[in-house]
Design a protein around this nucleic acid. Structure first.
Lengths: 297, 297
DNA sequence: TAATTCATTCCGGTTTTATCGAACTAAACT
DNA sequence: AGTTTAGTTCGATAAAACCGGAATGAATTA
């Protein structure tokens, strides 16, 4: 091997060291001994003719050329992945990293096809890697906008420019109370009075003034942007709040949740596939989107 | 070595084979035996999971994925060169952030080489960033001591431990009065009387008791640690004070300042380059210091 | 000062890789 | 069919890469 030849393995090790902040910490990540790492690192330094970092008991620190080398290494390794992806695509296989931003609790919806799509993509390319981020509604969109996620699945009413929205299915939300709350076992005639007093949880959807046309008592004394947070609050017996039917069903079946006048207190919102007009060019993104749509015909 | 890992050496061999149009021809170019080349090539095919080319007595021909792989290989190898070049450049080129603490009004001294040094460093590395802080004398030293500044340029009489001082040039200060002050147009014989009454500005230099051996009237009714502040005070016509000759010249030429008995009321202080024994190890600091000294030979 | 932590260096044994040459196969040319 | 050319396969071998452990060093912490 020539001295001037780039050795990707050494670069990977170097990157790991940098990201772990020292040889000792990199040990477990690389699962090779410290002495080995040390010699690899100094190997690289000799090859490049550069002192890459200061290290020792006094702390780990990149030199300026080290910083540059680190950045360049990341770039080169990225380009290697692109190479692999190009080659894989040429044989009709998918390859690369899929990053998904998904609104929380969607997993409990039986119509949710995410798992199926993952299986399908993995089937079509063993090199496909997944990076799934479950987050609240707003975050789904921002993740797609700023490129953290290739594709998002969530709900949205105020569509952002630069994003494409494709409706997958509708999600119906009901107003729930839990055992222990006055509304849980009350006489039907008392409902409207009790409702006027009940504190309602403010969720992402309910943050918009226009959504609060149900005459309920929004005091902002309980706010939660994740359904799981809302569930906690409802379970306390002190609040009532909207939840997707599929998510609440778990507790409804156990007899601890009850929907309050479901014919009145309900809203339906479409679950949408969110993609960016920018980064949907890669074959991987293409396949993901197509498959997602196909599953929701 | 993992299967999905890219091996640059194999890619180089593959490229050579393609460009030579067969294994036999590539033999001499790679100066390795045909059997070796053959096994390398099939290695690569196994790794990528692709049949790259047809070969045999019937002629050499790339498959379609082979063509794509060849193109992608060229690209990747190109990017490797770019990587190498980036890293190599970072070796010789200076890069990083230069923080300078400079005593104020030095810019008006024609012997001040700061601008020239900045130009020179920028020339030697387009990645160099500058962070210049113009401040009063004391601050120059403290900035270097606590690391806020890599290098300082200022005046100092009580050298601090841990700092290195390198004399650049001498700066002469005269005692000035401005139009409107009794001393400005007075009769030479009246000077000594008027001087006894004139209020003198206390500056950084004049804060030391030992410096106040000129018999003047220091009342501390006007204090300024920046030359520009001193200039303001002198311009008011109510005070007299010491200023560097090069800085005062501007107003002297316009006829609004006048030096008072310049043969008597003057002092000279060396302008020094101040560096810390700690952080002068970086190549950037090194270059800066060397260049600064070179300009002041 | 002692203990701790991080890193380097050296040692040796194991594994992997690179390489060559010889034997072999397959197609094409004579 | 025999020859030629191109490539493959198969050991064998030497080189190298790899790895962990012990000893050491250096700087920090107790």
């Amino acid at each position: 091997m020539q001295v001037h030849d780039v050795d990707l393995r050494l670069l990977r090790i170097f990157v790991a060291i940098v990201e772990c902040g020292g040889l000792a910490a990199a040990e477990s990540r690389l699962s090779i001994g410290r002495s080995t790492i040390s010699s690899h690192l100094s190997d690289l330094e000799v090859r490049l003719g550069i002192k890459l970092c200061k290290r020792g008991r006094s702390g780990f620190e990149l030199t300026e050329p080290g910083r540059i080398t680190y950045q360049a290494s990341l770039e080169l390794l990225q380009q290697c992945e692109a190479f692999a992806s190009t080659v894989a695509t040429s044989k009709n296989e998918l390859s690369g990293r899929v990053s998904l931003a998904i609104i929380d609790t969607l997993v409990s919806d039986p119509r949710c096809a995410v798992a199926h799509v993952i299986a399908e993509l993995k089937e079509r390319g063993s090199n496909v890697q997944f990076d799934i981020n479950v987050c609240e509604a707003r975050e789904v969109e921002t993740s797609v906008v700023n490129g953290r996620a290739l594709v998002g699945i969530g709900v949205s009413r105020h569509h952002l420019r630069g994003l494409d929205y494709y409706p997958l299915h509708d999600e119906t939300n009901y107003l729930y109370c839990a055992a222990g709350h006055p509304l849980f076992d009350c006489d039907p005639s008392a409902v409207s009075d009790l409702l006027a007093d009940a504190e309602v949880i403010t969720s992402n959807y309910m943050r918009d003034r226009e959504s609060r046309n149900d005459g309920l008592n929004y005091q902002n004394s309980a706010i939660a942007y994740h359904d799981e947070g809302i569930a906690h609050l409802i379970l306390s017996g002190k609040f009532i709040g909207y939840l997707p039917e599929h998510y609440a069903r778990h507790w409804v079946d156990k007899g601890v949740f009850k929907a309050i006048e479901p014919e009145v207190y309900r809203y339906t919102i479409p679950v949408v596939l969110i993609t960016s007009k920018n980064n949907s060019a890669s074959p991987l993104a293409q396949a993901l989107i197509e498959e997602m749509k196909r599953c929701h015909l």
